[in-house]
Design a protein around this nucleic acid. Structure first.
Lengths: 187, 187
DNA sequence: GTCTATAGCTGGATAGAC
DNA sequence: GTCTATCCAGCTATAGAC
């Protein structure tokens, strides 16, 4: 479909600006200008700015897990897969100039009445934890009783979250390097 | 000084609104209305909204450490002091209806060019980690070689950060309960 | 479906009376 | 140093031509 090309461009530009400048600091005017489309076209595809936010979060979640799958696919050892998640987090932080986790950012600034966006963020975090749990289950299958699955999954998830926000505030990857080492010692 | 009474009221109202609604979502109009003061009075005490933000962050940091000192003072065992920090985090989350860490929120939404605010957030996080390190040093003095100071401090700090953001997104204290248990097992 | 023009409002900040 | 009146730029969203 030709019509979805413009939709894609709108969403790409909006995503970049929402992430870099923040949702509230990004106006419709800037989006239409940088996407080189007209005001009416935007509202034709997205009835409101909030719909654009919803699409942004859903799109980010899909992209995030796709990238994980792609980059983890060549690795065979589930323990190395799990540790690779920290490398990917560092990669993302470096290429975004320490912009931080998009979902945490959105959760921090969305209007308190936007429950839809909040639920999408919650969903992403839950799926992330499940993703980690599945990797740990594979570790357990290959090497039974090597780790206490539930506690390790909890610990590594919380370490990752903490390291992401810390790396963002410190503007360097040290916290992620530390978190990876700690995670390694648990497995 | 009588004059600082109105300044205090402005800062109180602004702080409440910045935390609850977000900095970008809170307008000057709402602040002056809820503080029942005139536009000019606000700009007399705070030359710009950004100065109000700076004062908010500094004030929050001071309050945060004061509360820690007060609530930890009755406890003698340094290990119990450290674990108490998780209880205080739960207390704060409950009383703010899971509003999250004020400093992480601000770091997520401030304009990218406001380096002053960003540095203040960085300063607070560094001070928080130092606070934890000092408690762990005391544990080591009472019970030498019980823990590897540097790694434990890193781990507990990252767990706390991760648990705070997770509790905020999940709107319950489970992550902080989990993090406390993990921290306890490390000490 | 894409465009321009504009409505209707609210943002931060300033000027000047008192 | 506290007030009111006001400026102007920005916002989201809509109307109607093409």
């Amino acid at each position: 479909m030709k019509e979805s090309a413009i939709r894609t461009r709108i969403l790409e530009v909006a995503s970049r600006l929402f992430y870099k400048q923040g949702y509230n600091s990004t106006g419709i005017n800037q989006i239409i200008e940088e996407a080189s489309i007209a005001r009416g076209s935007l509202y034709n595809h997205f009835p409101s700015k909030r719909d654009l936010l919803t699409a942004y979060i859903q799109n980010m979640e899909e992209f995030s897990f796709q990238e994980w799958n792609t980059l983890l696919e060549p690795i065979k050892d589930p323990k190395q897969k799990l540790l690779k998640l920290f490398d990917i987090a560092m990669l993302r932080q470096t290429r975004s100039e320490f912009g931080g986790c998009a979902f945490i950012k959105i959760a921090s600034e969305i209007p308190c009445d936007d429950l839809v966006a909040f639920d999408l963020v919650y969903h992403q975090k839950k799926a992330t934890k499940t993703y980690m749990e599945n990797l740990i289950t594979q570790i357990n299958i290959e090497n039974p009783q090597s780790v206490d699955k539930e506690i390790v999954a909890n610990t590594i998830f919380l370490l990752m979250e903490g390291a992401m926000v810390t790396a963002t505030i410190a503007k360097n990857n040290q916290a992620l390097i530390d978190a990876k080492k700690i995670a390694e010692s648990l497995l």
